[in-house]
Design a protein around this nucleic acid. Structure first.
Length: 286
DNA sequence: CTTCTTGTTACTGA
DNA sequence: ATCAGTAACAAGAA
């Protein structure tokens, strides 16, 4: 499940791998996941090049040299962007070597660059998408996203304003992309654990101390996860096809029934909050 | 066979 | 008008 740390890892990897390279041709293997007309999609990208890669929440934005349009890529749950690079390019400490099982049955797009590099989009469940949007549409799309939690704009004051007047539970609050952009199910649970607050707590019952711990935990957990290049729980891999390194650092997600590392005497519970699988320690979290 | 997985949005009700 | 809660989507694993 690519959340902010996973998408940010891919963004940085791809900056090294594809920036400024002319696109020779675009292969749409299945016709799925590409929004709009396939011919137009390939036609716009052919001869173009990527001049910058941005991230907003879990959405990737590829700026094109032609300037009139932007390529949006959302990985949703099982999408992958994997780049096969010619030459010995090192990304994130890993060589971007030839990956011999690509393209596979779940490869929907292959973007071929003139130097021989190929960027593949794979998605088992086809929830993810690639979409070319005109520059005047971008603003409306980005307006739906809340503050970037790792930007200086995410201040204590801004955070308090988001909470005020709201009556939802903490889990739903953290998952709401129009408030804070980029937190998904894994890191929402990890943030609640670090802050010692139960995910099902109504946000209007939080003390100022609890709010402060949640605010600090959002930043701390996301920074740690970015530093470890994200969490591979099922399908996620970085742009060189490698797994993320944060899995051993998870304290609650995917640890149902295991002993809590912090209190040592209770076990991690799994319940359902805000319609999502939710993990916490009922001894440590109030 | 059923149930579970999650990011996002459509829809319902307050 | 705004907010909250739930179902739906997809397809594979168990």
């Amino acid at each position: 499940m690519p959340e902010l740390p996973e998408v940010e890892t891919i963004r940085k990897d791809l900056q090294y791998a594809v920036l400024g390279k002319p696109i020779r041709l675009v292969h749409t293997y299945t016709g799925r996941c590409v929004k709009g007309d396939l011919q137009r999609f390939s036609g716009v990208l052919r001869g173009n090049s990527i001049t910058a890669i941005h991230r907003r929440g879990k959405l990737l934005l590829f700026e094109l040299a032609s300037g009139d349009q932007t390529l949006l890529v959302h990985l949703k749950m099982t999408g992958q962007l994997i780049c096969q690079v010619t030459g010995g390019l090192i990304v994130g400490g890993h060589p971007m070597a030839k990956i011999d099982d690509l393209p596979n049955a779940y490869t929907h797009v292959g973007m071929h660059f003139t130097d021989g590099s190929i960027l593949y989009f794979n998605d088992v469940r086809t929830f993810g998408y690639l979409s070319l949007v005109s520059s005047d549409e971008i603003e409306g799309i980005l307006r739906r996203y809340g503050v970037e939690p790792l930007s200086p704009e995410f201040s204590w004051d801004v955070f308090q304003d988001m909470l005020s007047g709201r009556r939802t539970n903490l889990k739903a609050f953290l998952l709401n992309q129009s408030l804070i952009a980029g937190i998904g199910n894994i890191y929402a649970d990890e943030i609640c654990y670090r802050a010692k607050v139960r995910p099902d707590r109504a946000v209007d019952t939080l003390s100022s101390g609890e709010k402060k711990r949640i605010f600090n935990s959002i930043t701390a957990i996301l920074i740690q996860a970015v530093a470890k290049r994200g969490t591979t729980f099922s399908n996620y891999v970085d742009a060189s096809g490698k797994k993320g390194g944060y899995l051993p650092y998870l304290k609650v997600y995917n640890r149902e029934g295991q002993r809590c590392e912090r209190c040592g005497d209770d076990f991690i519970l799994k319940t359902r909050v805000a319609g999502r699988g939710t993990h916490y320690c009922q001894s440590c979290q109030e």
